[in-house]
Write a protein that binds this DNA or RNA. Sequence first.
DNA 1: GTGCGAATGTGACAAGCGTCACCCGGGGGT
DNA 2: ACCCCCGGGTGACGCTTGTCACATTCGCAC
Lengths: 200, 200
Amino acid sequence: MIRVLLAEDQAMVRGALSALLNLESDIEVLGTAADGEIAWRELQRLKPDVLVTDIEMPGLTGLEIAQRVRRQELPIKVIIVTTFARPGFLRRALDAGVGGYLLKDAPAENLAEALRTVHRGGRAIDPQLALEAWSEADPLNDRERQVLRLAGEGQSANDIATQLNLSHGTIRNYLSEAIGKLGAANRIEAYRLARQKGWL
Amino acid sequence: MIRVLLAEDQAMVRGALSALLNLESDIEVLGTAADGEIAWRELQRLKPDVLVTDIEMPGLTGLEIAQRVRRQELPIKVIIVTTFARPGFLRRALDAGVGGYLLKDAPAENLAEALRTVHRGGRAIDPQLALEAWSEADPLNDRERQVLRLAGEGQSANDIATQLNLSHGTIRNYLSEAIGKLGAANRIEAYRLARQKGWL
DNA sequence: GTGCGAATGTGACAAGCGTCACCCGGGGGT
DNA sequence: ACCCCCGGGTGACGCTTGTCACATTCGCAC
């Protein structure tokens, strides 16, 4: 019997996935969590074999939970199930030592199958994504990422400067760097590109 | 027996929702569709009582399907199930005569309940959203919407001008109008605001 | 110490952006 | 015939962006 905790913020999807997994005779859904913090608490209380979690959740993200599990050396496997086919996410997930990484647009049967594989100690990584992941590295450094994120929210160079205690000019330099590295024409395009790759 | 067709582009969610609905004794899932065009074909072939559909799908969106159903006066109810709590979407859905509009972060049991209500001829609209929907009207006109959408993709005023066969200056005027109406500081913020409200 | 390389700043320039006041031409009312 | 509204355009103004070449400072390696 594989004992599972399910974390996913959209209630309807959570309920549906739970129903789906409960149809399997060798899988038992111990509980579900609507956000990252609840998931973390339930994880410690229920001690499941496997945590199945989304990435984007209020509070803790799925990636952050995976990092904590690894840091505390808990005997719990983590499977990420997410909408986003972003190589950067997969990469960070692998760095956090997750057992599986599936996309929500993979067939539903894959989930139970992946659960069994991971429970046996194997890995279940979405195949197309696995290829892309190591092909293209994130060219941005921390500052560039940070500045690009704020610029993408509509803030001007001046706004960002005050917010980060840097000078107006420096911000523009970083932004220019980022735009160049990404081969974009302006901050908006750069933001979109970076976001799409999961480099945020 | 309520005969249902389910349209949703994410395979895993599709499978899970299908499993969920099949647990109900009075509901039968006739089939599922992975995008809007398939959904439209299956709709005509299977003649279900109710179509449960996502909004954002490749090909036809759920809203467009609802509009077609109404235009052709098919005896099929439509229930929209979506992630997006955007008042503008609900409004367009109501204009298209849908029977129900639920959010994916409503509890899973609501879906079956809504199906029954709509099948009986009632309406199932997410309550909080219903309030907001009529409170704030979309202030943008067609040109502004169009221009703002392109600007949000990172295109410059010049790019947009050539694309729409308008002058450089006119584009900037429209953009300025849109920014003003939305109370934004620049195109990026304006784009984000409009998008968030579902005015796109 | 000397030297190198990050990280941050500066100043200048051209291009793009946001705003505004105003112009033009074609429908519709009346 | 008149006016007025509407979609579109013009030109000018000042500010923001994107780029680049060149400082400054600090820390680390040797």
